[in-house]
Design a protein around this nucleic acid. Structure first.
Length: 536
DNA sequence: GCTCCGTTGTGGTC
DNA sequence: GACCACAACGGAGC
């Protein structure tokens, strides 16, 4: 897989000067003007520039069979966030004398691109390199088409700080499997492009093509949108840069940031930057973010370090991108060499209880409701619910939880989401399966009065502090007074944490023991094979 | 084969 | 807030 990554870097711009030329800039991620090498190359020596976004049915067409409002792959909140990103991008392009051309996808975006490239007589096709399997598949189609028709392709790596293929190459063809070994290999990233535009080449003649402006959510076919609470985060590059500016103002906060010390129950003022949705869509360049953080560190002097520092968080993103790129079947247990093979339990009712925030554990349920309503929750809150679903309590397959997160998170990112589910379920990277988050005491530590729970689960709002994490222990008189009868207004716990976590630990112990004996068997057989060879 | 280390465990003590 | 015991994993380095 790694050897296929013949991606260009910004320092390797072809020097050939095009004469009369039409360039097409295909936006997928990278929904920004700043630090956008594909845009910068596309506009150079081009008479016309066609900035295009293709509506991918897989992500944007309504699917009524999905468990929540949205498409097959994306919940409504992320779809709305994406449309905000596109509107903002369109406004920015219009200020530069251009506009965003939004096309309906045919069967997939790649075939739509191939069709218009021919129709608009495109000489130069530019798009950001994508490391995800789905992106790679589309890119292959487009690149094959372009090479058959003699169209120049420029495909820079600019979504990440490093080219995952380079890091894997430095490690002898295998991705590094620990953060520290990744850091040792990665080195310093290239800086962002230092260029601003006063204007861009005009959009050329689009002929007969049916061109759309950025659609509204209703135009995409989502009619029954009744939401009690919308996510407090708006999409787009302008919002990303505003948010970054806000974050950069507090230099002390940046200098002292330590991820594990953050408060997962903070929701009015989250304990992290909430820049992840903007990095996901490329509204914010990771290289620009890195550079600005580095500048703050230089000004303040003393600061925290990776892995816990803010800059360290950007490097975690790179770590997961690298491992994901170099590991076949990274997003599944079977066929994934770095993933422990665990006999997870099939239990649809428990999965639905977890997904819908009805486990009877207010801390877990509040987090799942925040996910549903906001599409975002703190990293440690994600840990709590992921541990609870998998190795901690319910013993349900991490792929099931991964699917729910992938759909509902605004910052849903293939490599990072799968990487973290592998981590939390103790299937890869992390082995201390006996360290289990308590669905009661972990949250209580940060928020003893249960403000977070009361906000996201209003039915519990009058339960006294001493019972808010364990409402089933409240006497009936207290439940009546709080207008919340457990078993009627709010569910009883779906499992007992004490017994469930003990059983989980036992099962994980068995999996690990089996894994050890398999590994030693393999070692033995390879040893004896070597001896046999030597004797011969 | 040993020791040390690993972003982010819990529950107890001071 | 810092420290410890608890129980106890794999990988890296020696």
């Amino acid at each position: 897989m790694a050897s296929e990554a013949a991606a260009s870097s910004i320092s390797s711009f072809p020097r050939r000067l095009a004469m009369e030329s039409n360039a097409l800039l295909w936006f997928r991620k990278g929904l920004r003007i700043h630090d956008n090498p594909a845009l910068d190359y596309a506009r150079r020596e081009s008479n016309n520039l066609f900035p295009v976004f293709v509506i991918d049915p897989r992500y944007l067409h309504p699917d009524s069979s999905a468990f929540s409002l949205g498409s097959t792959r994306a919940g409504i909140n992320r779809i709305r966030f994406l449309l905000e990103c596109l509107s903002d991008l369109d406004s920015s392009l219009r200020r530069l004398g251009s506009r965003l051309l939004v096309l309906r996808g045919d069967s997939d975006p790649a075939s739509a691109i191939c069709r218009i490239v021919k129709e608009w007589k495109i000489r130069k096709l530019c798009f950001e390199y994508d490391t995800e399997p789905y992106g790679q598949e589309l890119d292959r189609k487009v690149k094959d088409f372009a090479s058959k028709h003699g169209i120049e392709v420029f495909c820079p790596v600019s979504h990440t700080l490093f080219n995952p293929a380079d890091v894997i190459g430095k490690n002898g063809g295998k991705p590094p499997l620990t953060y520290q070994s990744f850091i040792a290999l990665a080195g310093k990233p290239e800086g962002p492009l230092e260029v601003t535009y006063s204007e861009l080449p005009p959009v050329g003649n689009v002929g007969e093509s049916e061109l759309l402006t950025v659609p509204t959510i209703e135009e995409l076919g989502y009619k029954e949108m009744i939401e009690e609470e919308f996510p407090p985060f708006r999409g787009g590059e302008s919002e990303a840069l505003r948010r970054l500016k806000e974050v950069l103002k507090d230099k002390e906060w940046i200098a002292n940031f330590e991820k594990p010390k953050g408060d997962p129950s903070a929701f009015l003022k989250p304990a992290t930057t909430v820049l992840s949705p903007y990095l996901k869509f490329g509204c914010l360049s990771s290289r620009y973010f890195y550079q600005r953080l580095h500048n703050v560190y230089q000004i303040v002097g003393k600061h925290t370090s990776p892995p816990v520092s803010l800059l360290g968080q950007l490097l975690w993103r790179e770590f997961f991108y690298t491992v994901a790129f170099g590991t076949p079947n990274f997003d599944q247990m079977i066929g994934n060499k770095i993933c422990k093979q665990v006999p997870w339990r099939e239990d649809e009712a428990l999965l639905v209880a977890w997904r819908e925030g009805r486990t009877g554990y207010p801390w877990i349920d509040a987090i799942m409701i925040q996910l549903k309503k906001w599409g975002w929750m703190h990293h440690l809150a994600r840990h709590s619910v992921a541990c609870f679903l998998t190795r901690g309590d319910l013993f349900i397959h991490w792929e099931k939880g991964r699917d729910v997160f992938e759909r509902l998170l605004l910052d849903s990112d293939w490599a990072i989401n799968n990487g973290n589910w592998l981590w939390l379920s103790s299937s890869a990277f992390f082995n201390q399966y006996y360290r289990i988050y308590s669905p009661i005491s972990f949250g209580k530590k940060y928020d003893p009065d249960g403000k977070y729970i009361r906000h996201f689960i209003p039915v519990l709002k009058d339960i006294p502090n001493e019972y808010v994490y364990e409402p089933w222990t409240a006497p009936l008189s207290v439940q009546r007074k709080a207008n919340c009868i457990i078993g009627k207004d709010y569910p009883r716990p779906v499992v007992s944490h004490d017994t469930a976590s003990k059983e989980c630990k036992k099962k994980m112990g068995e999996v690990y023991a089996k894994d050890r004996s398999m590994k030693s068997c393999k070692k033995e057989s390879s040893k004896s094979a070597t001896l046999r060879k030597r004797k011969k």
